[in-house]
Nucleic acid binder design. Structure first.
Length: 578
DNA sequence: GCCGTTTTCGGCCCGACTGTTTTCAGTCG
């Protein structure tokens, strides 16, 4: 059983224990262990084999044994018995706002309600109203929650959230009482999908009411879900939720740190503060028994007082960034100014909307020195993939354009299909005519993991392949990644000096940043590739850049930071090394 | 269920908001 499934089971055990009313700290122990496993860099199976599970903080005798059983047998009798003793619908119920473990337990025990449908019906029948700890308001809130859940279950792609956030930020900035304003939360950390926007504002105490009122009066607000003196929550018409928090100006750096998260990062940070006899919260950093916070003018100050270097928001996922900050070993993350060019650009030769020249000129306007044109290969007939004949035409056109646009350079690339058996869609003598080759999977997504892994690894071992395109084929919120053992793919990439694409299309963001962190540690090079099919698509590189940063990459490991000369010799060296 | 240069027992991160209460429990982030 793999890591992801084990994490899910440990979390579910935690929730089941809570619903059953067991010791809440016992439940928390399962959550903690789940988180520890989730961020584990090492191979879990190996850890089990070497009997080193208990080295993990938060994993003792009992949990080590349970995890070992799961890894070895794929089953856990304790979990199965627990699960069987609690109706499945109760876990679903926890997802309704206002329904926590205690309330779920109450409706189950008093009303024998086991599904969300039954819960909704009971609300309509006024049967929740008289339960202990419930009332009319609670019943209404739960009913509203069920309705909202039906309407807005999804998460949102990064561009949607960024645009909504920018709009509401501008709207709030227009209010004279707003002294400082920042987007915090997962958006600031550039997670690949977003559930809600966290908006943080510094203001004087006497202006709070006016700002909350201004916030809930925003024209895009569809529903107000929470409204107090220092915070308010709304659902926007787009379906995206937005939380507002108000703090005083002096508290702003602490609040920004706190509300940027992640929860796991903050928990670790607060624990660190405790060890230093300090208390960290959204209002300050307090020495023991002190009323006054240690003053900090910025987030950097907060981290500095905890003995840490400033940790860029993208890294705050409790993936080792705190330890690295302590040792001064944080990477110098790649920045926009480091990017000299873009790869993986489609044109009207296959399924793109713009010509080579149009794409090149837009790239020049964006300040780049080169682009790599990569249309589809012939197997991608649905995408008008290039025949050998049309490749020649395209190359002639690129040569003409290169003379015209000099010193800007258009590189002759291709996105060649990896066929189901791992061979490529062109013969070697055709592949040799390109400056570089990206190999991608576009068909037969349903192979078994072993076959898919070998298919991709075989393509990567091909001497003429320079990069692997969208390594897992996932579509965020749309299609699961295909079954592939990425650890093996990364191993092969490292051994043969192959580049892995960070596909910057916001529906893909593939390589996933969690794998990206591994890749960076292994010294693997990546390329931020917009996979652009239109002029605007070129701008998607920003999302890929965010993921490269989130994956701990410095400029020297990101191919886009290379000059044209350095690139050409790198591509040649890749081929000669085989 | 985990953990310990205060502890092998008694703690476990912290605070706002809501609704149900009449001082607080539950939920949420």
């Amino acid at each position: 059983m793999d890591k992801k499934e084990i994490v899910k089971i440990l979390e579910e055990i935690g929730r089941l224990l809570e619903i059953k009313g067991e010791n809440p700290f016992k439940a928390r122990a399962y959550y903690n262990a789940a988180r520890r496993i989730e961020v584990l860099q090492e191979d879990l199976t190996r850890l089990v084999e070497e009997g080193r599970l208990k080295e993990l903080k938060g994993v003792g005798d009992a949990l080590a044994q349970k995890i070992e059983t799961l890894v070895k047998t794929g089953r856990l009798p304790y979990y199965e018995e627990l699960k069987a003793s609690v109706p499945q619908g109760l876990l679903e119920m926890l997802k309704i706002p206002g329904m926590g473990p205690k309330k779920v337990k109450t409706v189950y025990e008093k009303l024998e309600i086991t599904t969300i449908g039954e819960l909704e019906y009971a609300c309509h029948e006024n049967r929740l109203r008289d339960l202990p700890g419930f009332g009319l308001k609670t019943q209404q809130k739960i009913l509203k929650g069920i309705e909202l859940r039906k309407k807005y279950t999804e998460r949102f792609h990064l561009p949607v959230a960024l645009e909504e956030a920018a709009k509401i930020k501008r709207y709030m900035e227009a209010h004279p009482a707003a002294q400082k304003i920042e987007i915090a939360g997962s958006l600031r950390r550039r997670k690949e999908t977003i559930k809600d926007i966290d908006l943080l504002i510094a203001c004087r105490q006497q202006d709070r009411e006016a700002l909350v009122k201004h916030f809930v009066s925003y024209s895009e607000v569809d529903a107000i879900t929470n409204q107090g003196h220092t915070k308010a929550s709304v659902v926007l018409k787009s379906g995206l939720a937005c939380d507002l928090r108000l703090v005083e100006e002096g508290q702003f750096p602490f609040a920004l740190q706190y509300f940027t998260g992640s929860a796991a990062h903050n928990t670790a940070l607060r624990h660190r503060a405790r060890v230093q006899k300090l208390t960290l919260n959204e209002y300050g950093l307090f020495p023991e028994n002190a009323e006054q916070s240690i003053p900090c003018a910025s987030e950097s100050d907060v981290y500095r007082h905890l003995g840490l270097a400033f940790i860029p928001p993208e890294l705050r996922e409790d993936f080792g960034e705190i330890e690295a900050a302590e040792k001064g070993a944080l990477p110098q993350l790649i920045e926009k100014k480091d990017l000299k060019g873009l790869f993986h650009v489609h044109t009207t030769y296959s399924d793109g909307a713009s010509s080579i020249e149009e794409m090149a000129r837009r790239a020049m306007e964006l300040g780049f020195d080169y682009i790599g044109i990569c249309d589809h290969s012939k197997a991608a007939y649905y995408a008008n993939g290039l025949s050998e004949e049309r490749i020649k035409m395209q190359h002639q056109e690129i040569e003409r354009l290169n003379e015209m646009l000099d010193p800007f350079v258009i590189l002759k690339g291709i996105e060649v299909d990896i066929l189901p058996d791992g061979t490529l869609d062109y013969s070697d003598d055709v592949l040799e005519t390109f400056d570089f080759v990206i190999a991608s999977v576009h068909s037969s997504f349903n192979l078994e993991e072993e076959a898919m892994t070998e298919r991709i690894c075989r393509a990567l071992r091909h001497p003429l392949v320079n990069m692997l395109g969208h390594p897992t084929g996932r579509l965020l919120l749309g299609r699961e990644p295909y079954a592939v053992n990425m650890d093996k793919v990364l191993e092969v990439a490292a051994r043969f000096n192959k580049v892995i694409e960070i596909n910057a299309n916001p529906y893909r963001l593939d390589l996933d940043w969690r794998q990206g962190i591994k890749a960076a540690k292994m010294g693997i090079k990546v390329a931020v590739n917009p996979d652009a099919h239109s002029l605007d698509g070129l701008n998607d590189f920003e999302y890929g850049l965010a993921i490269a940063r989130k994956s701990w990459f410095t400029a020297s490991e990101v191919l886009n930071s290379y000059s044209v000369e350095k690139l050409k010799s790198f591509f040649k060296a890749q081929q000669n090394a085989m």
